[in-house]
Simulated assay, not measured.
Amino acid sequence: MRITFLIFDIYGMGGTVRTVLNTANYLAAHGQDVEIVSVFRKNKDPFFPIDPRIRIRVLRNSVAAGQVGGRPGIKQRTLQYLRVPKLKSRLIHRDDEAYDAFSLMSDVKIYRFLKSLHDGVLITTRPSFNLMAAKYVDPRVCRVAQEHLNFDIHPPGLQRAIRRLYPRLDHLITLTDDDTATYRRLFDSTGLDVRKITNSAPQVSCPQSSLDQKAVIAAGRLVPQKGFDLLIEAFARVVERFPDWRLKIYGYGRERDALQRLILDKHLYNHVFLMGPSRDMQQELAQASIYALSSRFEGFGMVLVEAMQCGVPMVSFDCPKGPAEIVTHGEDGWLVENGNVERFAEALMDLMGDDEKRRRFGQNAVRNVQRFDIQQIGQQWLDLLEDIGRNRA
Rank of each mutant, 00 (worst) to 15 (best):
E284V: 07
S289K: 08
F297M: 13
E298R: 02
A288L: 09
L262F: 04
N270I: 00
A286R: 07
M281R: 00
L293F: 04
F300T: 06
Q282A: 12
S278K: 07
Q287V: 09
D280P: 00
L262W: 00
E255P: 00
D257S: 11
R254V: 11
G299M: 13
N270K: 08
K266W: 00
G276P: 08
Q282T: 10
A286C: 10
S278N: 10
S295C: 10
K266P: 00
H267G: 06
M275K: 14
S295A: 14
F300L: 10
D257I: 00
E298M: 07
Q287H: 15
S289F: 05
I290L: 14
Q287E: 15
A286T: 09
V272Q: 01
A288Q: 03
S289G: 15
S278T: 15
M302W: 00
I290W: 08
V272M: 06
Y291R: 01
S289L: 14
F273R: 10
G276M: 12
F273E: 09
E255S: 13
L259V: 06
Y291E: 01
I263H: 01
S294G: 12
N270Q: 15
N270T: 04
L264A: 15
N270W: 00
L293C: 05
A258R: 14
I290T: 11
L268N: 01
S294F: 11
N270G: 06
Q287R: 15
L264D: 10
L293A: 03
R296A: 11
K266N: 04
K266Y: 02
R256N: 06
A292L: 06
Y269W: 06
S289I: 12
V272S: 02
L274H: 02
